[in-house]
Amino acid sequence: MLKDVVFGQYYPAKSPVHRMDPRSKIVLLILYIVMIFIVKNFWGFLLTGGLLLATVFLSKVPLKSMLRSVKAIIFIILFTFIINIFFHKEDGAKILWDVWLIRNVTDKSLYYAIFMALRLLLLVLGSSILTLTTTPVSLTDGIESLLKPLSYIKFPVHELALIMSIALRFIPTLMEETERIIAAQKARGADFESGNLFKRAKALLPVLIPLITSAFRRAEELGDAMDARCYNGSKNRTKYKKLKFSLVDLFGTVLSLTVLAGVILCNLYLGATI
């Protein structure tokens, strides 16, 4: 079901990770992504993977929820793996396998493929920790606050953040609606599964048109509801949830920087696999 898509889904729990300031979570996620992309050997992955596991453990998010987000992109990971294993070329690589269909597999291309797959996996898991432990509003609050400097050059930071949080809010609603419309048109004999690409695209019209119509209707109603609740742009607006750094953030930052140092040391002293 479409609803299984984990993106934008918040998992309520009381944990140190939930308590962290969204700004530090965003910055640390970026730091973590940098780490997984500079890693040069398996020791580095052990460290970053360890950091990830520790965070998952501390966040109290059940592993099942995490794995669902992997399920959604498992094909992309496999695809990257396969592409790299066959097409990654490097000088001085030792050929491991070169018979029949499976050709040109070298030690380098195998490592490279494993690395890329691991990076994607760690990337998705890391990002979903952020969305699972941070409510959409505090996530957008975090982004708004981080982008604040841009508002001095008249960049509409508040509006952008509001648009993001509304988009996140309506993802599940529109997913549900899509399912309902698909079911209704199937009941009227619509066939989404046969015919060539053009035919299939055309078959989607009876789904897309009602969906877009309804999205516009929803937007209009939401606009009214926001006006009725005295929305007046960012002018004189207060924020209830104040972002505040605390000890948890300090701990998170120190932990991440330690791992970063570890990764760099591993890269320098334990040799490069790729």
Binding site: R180, I181, A183, A184, Q185, K186, A187, R188, G189, A190, D191, L205, P206, V207, I209, P210, T213, S214
Partner: peptide
């Protein structure tokens, strides 16, 4: 599906065609 017609809740939200005729005949043509 032809023999078992189904009218969902708020069925008017599934209308899509340019004219009433096209919308009503959608099922027949399918």
């Amino acid at each position: 599906r032809r023999s078992v017609g189904m009218v969902f809740q708020y069925p008017e939200y599934q209308l899509f065609a340019e004219t009433v005729f096209d919308d009503v005949s959608f099922g027949i043509k399918n």
